[in-house]
Design a protein around this nucleic acid. Structure first.
Length: 696
RNA sequence: GGCAGGAUAGCUCAGCUGGUUAGAGCGGCGGCUUCAUAAGCCGUAGGUCGCCGGUUCAAGUCCGGCUCCUGCUACCA
């Protein structure tokens, strides 16, 4: 019986590139969508860019362009990356679309009708420089409980306590550094408590949620009155202005999931279908894939909106864990934060699809990317076992094609065909790891068969030509079954297998009937092996910190060594990326020479450097200006530099900056560095400069 | 702090409602083979199932306590 299935992946935020972490989800979803299509079901796989919110607005502002320009760029980038990894979206939309506004407006009206919208005044932090209200995450300060510095406005990572942003001590805006002001803001809330019984019922009894998710919700939200959900944001905000509340915008998380429906709407309009046939049809199974970080949005707020809006509730919400690399969180400075683009510069997309599939289960566990394992799985499973079946048999039958009748094979083909439902069940349950395991067992059996029959021996005896053809017919048929079973994961490999055997691997039932009498194309390699070096190269941080002159402490005070300078000179200057940098940080307003001369820049020697344990970004540097007392300076370069390697280096400092009292001590100056965010480059003078010299 | 999840061979993990000598793949070691992208096949060695206690004829599997790890904790997208 054919099913109708609407599949979604969470919408990627249009504030950054697609990376290996995103791809866990998109590959997981795409495999599911392709599997269902292969089984003959009607599938719509939909996704879109999530485009609204403060973060987008601020970033666009910094880059000197409109949010619309920014999200248009990101849409192109995202879709290019997804295409390269084989995502089979039926439609890819944007939350900043007329369709999304229309659907959101409809749901909003229903909320109003049901008296579920209430208005309240809330005191919010306001950045007087950026002229914008600040989300909690855009305010940092000292934790009101334990006093830890550099904590965000919602909770302290040090002591774990949570608090309102207004209680932060010495708060400042992440954007401007300004001290936020408290300003009253009238906000709109969606009341969830009236939906408590519906949510309790749906989360606990519908079967849509994984067990641990249902437990989490029961223990964390449903055991007490549900708080009203603050869904509006005051201007300025990049998003949809709320139709019946001028000057107020829907919070990004209100309209983001609605983007699933909007994308469906656009697709339906394009293809002449009815939206209601998908979103208001009880026969249609809606399946959402998402990461555990956004669980409650999709299991509380979202079903509430769907319920009130009269849309179909998800049949299933499939939640996955995060990607880790080598057991650790992805990290830009360690080089393990790998974008889709960077991956593709080194490796093949299908390798990753298989690797993830071979590790994914239906649980919420994190998935750990391990270099050795990646190389091993691709080379030994895919090349050594699966593809090898074709390479060791196809050439023998290039001239003859497959036997006209399927030969006796000791039941191998039938056994593999009988695995069909077990493998399908594993795919259906999103237990791809199990599916891959079962398929690899089939490949093992096929390789044993080859070993036993020794086609290479048969080839030597002309009288055994028929035996040779029969053996290869069996092996290639087993290979074909495997290619069909793997098609959801490896569509390109399946297409090549289809071309080799003259039969597309595009229907699940193909595993039931052997191919006979068909031609076999000239054999070409179906997949290349992974070289471990390339995986290493991918995880090696970009040469973002070019070789810098580093001096042993004693020699430094005198003259830098020639070698040190040579290495600096050997780094070719390049203008590549300059435009991009200029875009990120547009030129500041013009100043006079007098303005400039107020800033006293000096060459300084790093005498000592150490990480500040409690600070995420800071190193404590002790700087010498040749004579006089050393300066104690806190520099936000922890992510880019190891303290030990800085000792003995010459840097440039602002020597007449007013000392600033920080949580960890007094900072008596500022070290000059280029770059923003994660990328920081210290500046160093050329050969001969001495600590204390002023820059002119 | 609260909540959720996890801890099983060197690594990644299976072990359902408790029941014979705890499994798979990879990796290791030994051998065979040469058709194949140094691929394949056979054999073999590795675990007192995180710790303590309890229930039971019987516990990796159930109960209690403890230790460690991960995540979430409502304006982080």
């Amino acid at each position: 019986m054919s099913r109708q299935i609407l599949v979604t992946s969470a919408l990627p935020y249009a504030n950054g590139p697609i990376h290996l972490g995103h791809l866990v989800e998109y590959i997981q979803t795409d495999v599911f969508a392709r599997f269902q299509r292969l089984r003959g079901h009607r599938v719509a796989y939909l996704c879109a860019d999530d485009t609204h919110g403060t973060a987008i607005m601020i970033r666009a502002q910094k880059e000197g362009r409109t949010p619309e320009q920014l999200i248009a760029d990101m849409a192109v980038q995202h879709q290019r990356d997804f295409a390269a990894f084989g995502m089979s979206f039926d439609h890819y939309g944007s939350t900043n679309s007329p369709a999304n506004l229309a659907i959101a407006t409809g749901i909003w009206q229903r909320l109003r009708e049901r008296q579920l919208v209430v208005e309240r005044s809330v005191e919010r932090l306001y950045d007087p420089v950026q002229k914008t209200f600040l989300a909690d995450r855009f305010v940092v300060g000292e934790c009101p409980r334990c006093g830890a510095a550099e904590q965000y406005g919602d909770s302290c990572e040090k002591c774990g306590s949570t608090y309102p942003a207004t209680e932060l001590k010495n708060p400042r805006s992440v954007h401007s550094g300004a001290k936020p002001e408290l300003r009253p803001s009238s906000q709109l809330f969606v009341r969830l408590e009236p939906l408590q019984s519906f949510l309790a019922e749906w989360t606990q009894k519908s079967g849509a949620l994984q067990g641990e998710v249902a437990n989490y919700l029961a223990g964390h939200f449903l055991d007490k009155p549900l708080q009203d959900w603050d869904v509006s944001r005051p201007a300025p905000y990049f998003g949809f202005e709320i139709p019946d509340a001028k000057g107020q915008f829907w919070y990004v998380w209100f309209d983001a999931p609605i983007g699933y429906i909007a994308a469906t709407k656009e697709w339906c309009e394009r293809t002449g279908q009815s939206l209601d046939a998908w979103w208001k049809n009880p026969q249609c199974e809606v399946v959402h894939f998402l990461g555990k970080d956004i669980t409650y949005f999709h299991t509380l707020f979202w079903p509430a909106l769907l319920h009130v809006g009269g849309y179909q509730l998800p049949k299933r919400v499939q939640i996955h864990g995060f990607l880790r690399v080598g057991g650790e969180k992805m990290s830009k400075s360690k080089g393990t934060f790998v974008t889709a683009e960077r991956y593709l510069q080194h490796l093949d997309a299908e390798w990753l699809r298989y690797y993830y599939a071979s590790k994914l289960s239906s649980k919420i566990d994190d998935l750990d990317f391990q270099e050795d394992e990646f190389v091993g799985k691709v080379n030994s499973d895919l090349v050594g076992r699966v593809v090898n079946l074709a390479s060791r048999s196809a050439r023998f039958v290039e001239a003859t094609g497959l036997s006209a009748n399927y030969p006796a094979d000791g039941g191998l083909f039938a056994r593999a065909a009988a695995q069909s439902e077990a493998i399908a069940a594993a795919y259906e349950a999103c237990d791809y790891r199990e599916a891959m395991r079962l398929v690899m067992l089939l490949a093992d059996a096929a390789n044993e068969y080859v070993e036993q029959k020794q086609p290479w021996t048969l080839k030597k005896d002309p009288a055994k030509a028929q035996d040779l053809q029969d053996v290869c017919t069996v092996v290639l048929n087993l290979f074909h079954q495997i290619a069909v079973y793997l098609q959801p994961v490896l569509p390109k490999l399946a297409a090549k297998a289809g071309a080799l055997l003259g039969s597309a691997c595009d229907r699940w039932e193909l595993v039931q009937r052997p191919l006979v009498g068909s031609k076999v194309a000239k054999f070409e390699h179906l997949m290349t092996r992974v070289e471990a070096d390339k995986v290493k190269a991918m995880f090696t941080p970009e040469p973002s910190a070019p070789a810098v002159p580093t001096l042993p402490p004693k020699a430094a005070a005198a003259t830098p060594s020639a070698a040190a300078v040579a290495s600096a000179a050997a780094t070719p200057a390049t203008t590549a990326g300059a435009n991009d940098a200029l875009q990120k940080e547009p030129l500041a307003a013009e100043i006079t020479i007098d303005d400039f001369q107020k800033v006293d820049l000096r060459v300084a020697l790093v005498v000592a450097a150490e990480a500040v344990p409690e600070a995420k970004k800071l190193l404590r540097l002790t700087l010498s200006l040749g004579s006089g007392p050393t300066r104690n300076v806190f520099a936000g370069i922890k992510s880019a530099y190891e303290p030990a390697k800085l000792v003995g280096r010459l840097v440039v400092m602002v020597a007449n900056l007013a000392p600033r009292q920080m949580k960890f001590g007094l900072s008596e100056g500022m070290v000059i560095a280029a770059g923003t965010d994660g990328e920081v480059f210290l500046l160093s003078p050329d050969l001969g400069a001495k600590p204390g010299q002023r820059l002119h």
